[in-house]
Amino acid sequence: MKKKNKRLRRIILFIMVIIASVLIMLASYVLQQNKHLMTYQKSLAKLPEVDQVLEISEYSGMESYYVAKVLLTTDLEYYYFIKDDIVEYSYPVTDLMTAQQAVKHALASHQGTVTHYYLGIYDEKPVYEVEISSTRGEEYVIVDAQSGDIVLQFVIN
C-alpha cells in the first residue's frame, strides 16, 4: 500500500513541476515582450519630431511590425508603422477611424463576439484586423481604416 502512495505522490509532484515550469516560461515570455516594446518606445521618443509615445504594440500578421501612436512636437498625433527599425508609414490619427468604428463596420456584416482587433497595414494601406468568434469558427474581417470598407474576410474552422 505504501508503494502505491509513493507512486501517486511522485506523479502528483511531477505534474506540479511541469505546470510550474510552463507558468514560469509564460511569465518570462510576457516580460520579454514588454521589455522589447519599451526599448522601441524609448528609441521612438528620441526622434526629433516626437514629443511623446502614447501607445505602442506589435502586429504579427502576414508581416510583423510595430504600430506606435505618437504625439509630435507640433501637437499632432500620428500613427507610425515601423518595420525593421524604419518608419515605413505614418498617418495622422484624425485620418483614420477608431478601433470601435472599425469593429462596428465588421459587425455590420458578421454575427459573433469580437475577440481582438489590431491596427495594421495591408497592401500599403492602414487597416484594422478584427477577429470575430462565431458559430462558423473564427472570422477575420479586414476593414480599411480610412474608408471603413471591408477589404478582406475569411473564416478559420
Rank of each mutant, 00 (worst) to 15 (best):
M1Y: 11
R9M: 10
A145R: 02
V127K: 04
M97W: 01
V67A: 10
M97Y: 01
V50F: 08
R9H: 11
L71G: 01
A102P: 04
T74K: 15
T135S: 13
Q33E: 14
S109K: 12
V22P: 00
S28D: 12
L107R: 00
T74Q: 12
D144C: 01
Q100Y: 06
M25W: 07
Y122N: 10
S28E: 08
I86A: 04
K4S: 07
S28N: 15
A99H: 03
E139R: 05
E131V: 14
F154M: 11
L152G: 05
D51G: 06
L23Y: 01
S133L: 12
I121L: 07
E124I: 07
I15W: 05
V114L: 03
P48Y: 01
N157K: 14
K6H: 07
S57E: 12
M25I: 06
A27W: 05
T113W: 06
K69Q: 10
E58A: 14
Y79E: 03
E88R: 15
A45T: 10
L152M: 14
I15Q: 07
D85V: 07
V151M: 13
G120W: 01
L23V: 00
V114D: 01
Y117H: 13
K69N: 09
Y40D: 13
V70L: 10
Y80M: 01
I156P: 03
A145W: 00
N5A: 10
F154N: 08
Y65F: 15
V127A: 04
G61Y: 04
R10T: 12
Q32S: 12
V87E: 07
T94R: 15
S109H: 08
Q33F: 13
A45G: 12
T113R: 15
L47Y: 13
E55F: 06
T115Y: 03
E55V: 04
I132H: 00
H105E: 14
A106C: 12
I18W: 02
Y117W: 09
R10K: 15
P92Y: 10
A99D: 12
L31F: 10
Y66N: 12
L72E: 07
V22E: 03
A45K: 14
E49M: 09
V50A: 09
K69D: 04
T74Y: 09
E58Q: 15
I86F: 03
M1F: 11
I18R: 05
Q32C: 05
Y66V: 07
Y29T: 06
E129S: 10
T73A: 08
L8V: 02
A106S: 05
I24K: 05
I86L: 10
I24T: 11
L37K: 03
V155R: 06
